[in-house]
Nucleic acid binder design. Structure first.
Lengths: 326, 326
DNA sequence: CTGTTAGCGCCTTCAG
DNA sequence: CTGAAGGCGCTAACAG
């Protein structure tokens, strides 16, 4: 009996059965070699006594923690909430817990979270858009890590096929007849924002290219750039992500610019929240699936990170441009 | 040096300084009694060697984990994402980590999560709307716990002043001239849903009382009940929460019922997401603050749980009823 | 104020 | 297949 918590230990079930603690230990661990009979008896006694393995003790002894650390910049963004759920579900299935750290959109907090958790996890899944490559790698100290929706030299990473997503978005708008497709770029410091911008630039050559921003990865970011967008004379716009796109739509509507009649808007991410009001056309990026893949790369040696497919989902915020009423 | 992880241990910094391990331990723990001079030397050496305390070892030795468990039914709901953030920020400030478990809206998963984490945390903050009181208490095995947005006999709990919130909502609608105020109730199995329904019933007496549902705690739940609402002839409705309210608005709009002209809608929770499109009038319930209070009750003995204030936030989904056009 | 000693609960050689 | 012994890294008496 654990003196402090009053919980049963391995010795209690050993005593109960008249066997040694090592036998109980072996019976309770996958690679332990015990007779089937004793294994069953041990399992029964453990259940009866309410035994739960003390993971701190196991950790100390084995050097493994059976836990993964997950960093996300902001849990309020459903994009990351879904990643958290996906990672947890997958890791649980593989016998691992996931410790989530919300880093509050701060590079500093990303580094701190890594340093705090480093000893207590077997590996990291990092949604870490802000911290610099070198600081990340330094803080990691060699702990196995998969980067999600970012690339860091020397680390495996799981990213979405943004070029293909952007191609789908641009093709859709061009097919509708939009000559000038603007882009609202996300925060300059964010890897993902840079990658999405590059994808746009690859798809839309000068002189048709119209880049606005960078704006904050928030509703307000979209709001702030709407008027500038109107001034460009574009009839269609692709936004860094759905949240930004919603801000854009909000301000456009307030200005009397009807979406999609006077402005087609495409978001990025494919969040459910973007369908609540005026259902937004968006390039969907797999959230849970990306997280699951990242966890697999960490936990199943041999799993090779592959690009996540992106998919344009056409809803109601895109249409053919209307002839200007004069 | 830790053989496995290659990280410095307390012995390394002890050796480096020519002192004993216990001295280092004392220098590094709050209640340890060491001379200021050696404390400084130890801190310097620890920093220089990149020492990080191994929390498993400390845990094993002290019986405390410096971690809290937080259960939430669904991280995708911003209500809980904000609770998670609030709890983490507060706990971090008090030297504790927070392990979040998303229980996927399942009573079973709530119990399992508690049993999984019980040994690894010093206490729980439970947003656990589904599991039964007895099973919860049984699974907890005496681990210090605060229940958030629910009441469980024998456990301290932090809840919002729903009656006052409901009073504000109903008063607002009555002042606007609505004679019949309907209510869309949340899932029958959820404590919070029952509490909100009671608050409505306390505020609206028969025969004016119109209760719809129960519906799922989702956008679709609101969608599903909109037509029934119209059939009641009510001109105003209060929904179980914001997400449900948004579903309601969506379907009403699709039916050509303009909000707020033909139907006033009030949500509950006060989420930002409910302002993205047609800004929703809502009864705001403190999220982060409730989580912080719960953490304090756990970590600061003597903190007494107080009811969280609720506040009606009037936005654009409520107005005076329009005379029926015939 | 500091060093020595003895575990915390578990896993893992090593014998038998 | 099973028991005994040692140690993971740290803290907590107990001496000095």
């Amino acid at each position: 009996m654990n003196a402090r918590s009053g919980r049963a230990t391995i010795h209690d079930v050993a005593a109960d059965l008249g066997v040694s603690a090592s036998t109980v230990s072996r019976a309770l661990t996958p690679q332990g070699t015990v007779s089937d009979a004793t294994r069953r008896r041990v399992e029964e006694a453990a259940a009866r006594l309410g035994y739960r393995t003390n993971s701190a003790a196991r950790n100390l002894s084995t050097g493994r923690t059976n836990a993964l650390g997950l960093l996300v910049p902001d849990l309020r963004n459903p994009f990351f909430a879904e990643i958290a759920k996906g990672a947890q579900n997958r890791a649980r299935g593989r016998g691992h817990a996931v410790y989530i750290a919300d880093t509050n959109l701060s590079a500093e907090a990303e580094i701190e979270a890594i340093e705090m958790m480093r000893r207590d996890v077997d590996g990291f899944v990092l949604c870490s858009p802000w911290a610099e490559d070198e600081r990340l790698v330094a803080a990691l100290q060699g702990v196995p890590t998969v980067v999600l929706h970012r690339e860091v030299p020397g680390l495996p990473s799981v990213t979405a096929d943004l070029h293909d997503g952007m191609r789908q978005a641009v093709s859709h708008l061009r097919a509708l007849g939009h000559p000038r497709i603007a882009y609202v770029s996300g925060p300059a410091g964010s890897w993902n924002a840079r990658a999405r911008l590059s994808a746009y630039e690859a798809e839309v050559a000068e002189p048709a290219r119209v880049v606005l921003g960078p704006v904050a990865d928030q509703f307000e970011g979209g709001v702030s750039v709407a008027d500038a967008l109107l001034a460009t004379g574009s009839t269609a716009v692709i936004a860094y992500n759905d949240i930004t796109a919603l801000g854009l739509v909000s301000r456009l509507t307030a200005r009397g610019v009807v979406v999609p009649d006077r402005m087609s808007v495409i978001g990025f991410d494919g969040l459910d929240v973007a369908t609540l009001a005026n259902p937004l056309t968006s390039v969907s990026v797999p959230r849970a699936r990306g997280a699951e893949l990242a966890v697999d790369v960490l936990l199943r040696p041999g799993t090779v990170p592959t690009a996540l497919p992106t998919q344009l989902v056409v809803r109601e915020s895109t249409a053919a441009p209307q002839p200007t009423v004069t």
